[in-house]
Deep mutational scan, measured.
Amino acid sequence: ETEYTFDDKREADRAAKEAQNNGLRVHVTKDGNRWKVRID
């Protein structure tokens, strides 16, 4: 399990989409004014 934090939602969405394309499970959550992408 890996977690990334992004300031920009577009960057978070791009990272999530890339991980999904690689067959990974992805969870995107909002943390204040930042975005967390957790990859299982």
Results as ranks from 00 to 15, higher is better:
residue 25 R to D: 05
residue 29 T to S: 11
residue 30 K to L: 07
residue 26 V to Q: 01
residue 23 G to H: 05
residue 19 A to P: 02
residue 32 G to D: 04
residue 28 V to F: 03
residue 21 N to Y: 08
residue 24 L to C: 10
residue 10 R to F: 12
residue 12 A to F: 02
residue 24 L to M: 11
residue 19 A to D: 01
residue 13 D to V: 13
residue 23 G to D: 03
residue 40 D to G: 13
residue 1 E to S: 14
residue 38 R to T: 13
residue 18 E to T: 09
residue 5 T to H: 10
residue 36 K to V: 15
residue 28 V to S: 01
residue 10 R to W: 14
residue 11 E to R: 05
residue 18 E to G: 04
residue 13 D to Y: 15
residue 23 G to Y: 03
residue 17 K to R: 13
residue 8 D to F: 07
residue 35 W to Y: 04
residue 16 A to G: 03
residue 16 A to F: 05
residue 12 A to R: 02
residue 8 D to Y: 08
residue 26 V to I: 04
residue 20 Q to S: 10
residue 4 Y to I: 09
residue 19 A to K: 03
residue 35 W to D: 00
residue 2 T to D: 08
residue 18 E to S: 09
residue 33 N to A: 06
residue 2 T to H: 12
residue 31 D to I: 11
residue 18 E to F: 09
residue 11 E to D: 14
residue 14 R to G: 05
residue 36 K to Q: 06
residue 27 H to V: 14
residue 31 D to Y: 06
residue 1 E to Q: 13
residue 3 E to C: 15
residue 21 N to H: 10
residue 22 N to S: 10
residue 4 Y to K: 07
residue 12 A to S: 02
residue 20 Q to E: 12
residue 29 T to P: 00
residue 36 K to F: 07
residue 39 I to D: 02
residue 3 E to Q: 07
residue 30 K to P: 07
residue 5 T to E: 08
residue 9 K to W: 15
residue 31 D to Q: 08
residue 26 V to G: 03
residue 20 Q to F: 10
residue 28 V to C: 09
residue 28 V to K: 02
residue 13 D to K: 07
residue 1 E to G: 14
residue 28 V to W: 01
residue 2 T to R: 14
residue 6 F to E: 01
residue 40 D to V: 15
residue 2 T to Q: 12
residue 24 L to A: 07
residue 28 V to T: 03
residue 16 A to S: 05
residue 21 N to S: 13
residue 17 K to M: 13
residue 12 A to G: 01
residue 19 A to Y: 12
residue 21 N to M: 14
residue 27 H to N: 08
residue 5 T to G: 04
residue 28 V to R: 03
residue 38 R to Y: 10
residue 21 N to E: 13
residue 28 V to Y: 02
residue 39 I to V: 09
residue 11 E to A: 11
residue 12 A to V: 03
residue 30 K to I: 06
residue 6 F to K: 01
residue 24 L to Y: 14
residue 24 L to K: 08
residue 16 A to Q: 04
residue 7 D to Q: 09
residue 40 D to T: 14
residue 30 K to S: 07
residue 30 K to C: 11
residue 5 T to M: 13
residue 30 K to F: 14
residue 29 T to H: 08
residue 15 A to T: 08
residue 33 N to E: 10
residue 25 R to G: 05
residue 26 V to L: 02
residue 24 L to V: 04
residue 11 E to P: 02
residue 5 T to F: 15
residue 34 R to M: 07
residue 33 N to I: 04
residue 22 N to P: 02
residue 33 N to P: 08
residue 3 E to N: 06
residue 20 Q to A: 12
residue 6 F to S: 02
residue 3 E to V: 14
residue 6 F to N: 01
residue 37 V to N: 01
residue 34 R to I: 07
residue 23 G to K: 04
residue 40 D to E: 15
residue 28 V to L: 07
residue 18 E to K: 10
residue 31 D to V: 13
residue 32 G to A: 03
residue 1 E to H: 14
residue 20 Q to Y: 10
residue 14 R to E: 11
residue 35 W to C: 00
residue 3 E to T: 11
residue 34 R to T: 07
residue 16 A to K: 04
residue 27 H to W: 12
residue 26 V to Y: 04
residue 23 G to W: 03
residue 20 Q to N: 06
residue 8 D to L: 08
residue 31 D to E: 13
residue 19 A to F: 15
residue 36 K to N: 05
residue 30 K to W: 13
residue 40 D to Q: 13
residue 4 Y to H: 06
residue 12 A to T: 02
residue 34 R to G: 06
residue 30 K to Y: 13
residue 37 V to P: 01
residue 10 R to Y: 12
residue 27 H to P: 00
residue 15 A to M: 14
residue 2 T to G: 10
residue 18 E to Y: 09
residue 16 A to E: 04
residue 20 Q to G: 06
residue 34 R to E: 04
residue 4 Y to D: 03
residue 29 T to W: 15
residue 5 T to L: 14
residue 27 H to A: 09
residue 27 H to T: 15
residue 15 A to H: 08
residue 39 I to F: 07
residue 10 R to S: 13
residue 25 R to V: 11
residue 25 R to T: 10
residue 26 V to A: 14
residue 22 N to Y: 04
residue 32 G to Y: 01
residue 1 E to A: 14
residue 33 N to T: 06
residue 31 D to T: 07
residue 6 F to I: 02
residue 35 W to G: 00
residue 1 E to M: 14
residue 34 R to L: 09
residue 3 E to I: 14
residue 14 R to M: 10
residue 17 K to Y: 10
residue 35 W to H: 00
residue 30 K to G: 04
residue 8 D to I: 05
